[in-house]
Nucleic acid binder design. Structure first.
Lengths: 261, 261
DNA sequence: TCCCAGCCTTGATCTGGATCAATGCAGCCT
DNA sequence: AGGCTGCATTGATCCAGATCAAGGCTGGGA
């Protein structure tokens, strides 16, 4: 299972409970840290705790200065831009990923509020210890760089999706993508409730709902929470997936090709 | 002069012509590379060329795979999301900064098109050599990480600005920011023509123009290209600058505080 | 001097999507 | 049963900002 874009949310209880008992184990099992030496992970683990945070909790507030580097091990988290009483969702974070490493790295205040959507398992590493480790361990630095680069690209894709496509196209492409992603024969299911999908796609629930009605014309339909493509041809004509928008953006190690020096 | 957000565009001819003759010198004079060893810069310089590219040129196209890591030394560049004939401006890049390091680092295709706005002095380093150097040199890796983190935060600020504020507020805050940024006594000037400011603020030129008319009510006005604050109180009541949106985001080295290990 | 190309402004109109407001429809608790 | 809470649909209306369409102003070139 990749951790790119549209994960079904895994029930956290079965995923993490037994295996991720300690920070040390959590670190070792983080795929994009595989290249990092045990010694460094030991150090990090020494300054870390593993917390389970219930849905609805606020992890940090806009303008706070980060005291921990946080790695989301299970569950999910939303990042919101806040202004007075208005909130706008900027990003949804899926495991295994860091929460706003940019703020931690630059020692600047968070630009966003973080709230738990599905019970989160969080690996919290003291910010200073984390920074020190990044400054000491080249492999760790490379891993964080990869993580940060991918987050940047996800942002750009999101911006393109919202600004270059109409609401209807976003919905169509989203469903189509789910459908393509599902194993052949198995019908695709909505991985989230509709309210959250709407937020993901940058529109209100009402607009999402209406749009779902409208795209029936294009051979795309929802029954309960499963996606039905009545007319594949019409669907693909109306909505063309673009890898530069819809493609997953998984965190990969920054490997050097060819001969090593 | 910081390289955060709202630079006046410096005439490239006087800034760079004599000093930045060679890639080697350009690298050494890049502020956020100061911590990188000469040896590494030598290697990079060995795989680099310094180019001067006229306004209007396309540097790379969406979906291309990066062959160079590009550092903008002087001039300016816009990054555009493209879909058919539609373009949407995602970002404007000011020197000294990298152009989409995320694509180079992840070896993925560019998500955006890059076009020169003001004649650009570009340091172009072969992608593989650059990646290799990042993989070899910890200090360089840290520098690139800092650069990438800042770019991420700029994106987030841009998103907040557009989604949390009305067109009128964006214009008001932009002008106010210019005004605050200017040395006391000296009137602030528009650093760009209005068309480009409009794009920067995520609106059409027409809307920008109308909005300029509208905010006269709030004690803010443009005369020619200088910003006049007729009524500071009204202006600050109507438009409150938020450091989490309007603050500059300069590229700084990722220093470790306190004792070194 | 005329002409033309770039900018900017101004007006009229359109519209995608938000907002406000009801209603339906589960599941769940007591 | 009832009543509550949270989600989803559906309809009516609104509005910020885009779009389309004319001008106006400035500077430059022959």
């Amino acid at each position: 299972m990749s951790h790119g874009g549209l994960q079904p949310f895994v029930s956290p209880s079965h995923q993490a409970d037994n295996r991720l008992l300690s920070p040390r184990v959590a670190l070792r099992e983080t795929p994009w840290l595989t290249a990092v030496a045990d010694k460094t992970l030991d150090v990090l683990a020494g300054h870390a705790v593993l917390h389970r945070i219930p849905a609805g909790s606020m992890l940090f507030e806009q303008a706070e200065t980060p005291t921990f580097a946080q790695i989301l091990v299970a569950g999910s988290v939303e990042l919101l831009g806040v202004r007075g009483n208005d909130e706008t969702r900027i990003e949804r974070v899926y495991p295994i990923d860091m929460l706003l490493p940019a703020a931690v790295l630059t020692r600047q205040p968070y630009l966003l509020r973080a709230r738990v959507l599905d019970e989160a398992h969080l690996l919290m590493i003291q910010a200073e210890a984390f920074l020190h480790a990044v400054a000491q361990d080249h492999a760790l630095c490379l891993a964080v760089l990869a993580c940060q680069a991918v987050q940047f690209r996800r942002q750009v894709k999101q911006a393109k999706n919202v600004r270059l496509r109409s609401a209807e196209e976003r919905v169509g492409c989203y469903l189509l993508r789910l459908h393509e992603g599902a194993p052949p024969g198995v019908p695709a299911r909505l991985p989230l409730n509709k309210r959250q999908i709407a937020a993901e796609l940058g529109m209100t629930r009402e607009t999402f709902s209406r749009t779902l009605g409208a795209i029936a014309r294009r051979g795309l339909r929802i029954d309960g929470d499963i996606v039905i493509v009545d007319d594949p041809v019409a669907a693909h004509t109306g909505f063309s997936l673009d890898p530069l928008i819809d493609g997953a953006e998984p965190i990969q190690p920054l490997a050097t090709k060819g001969t090593e020096g």
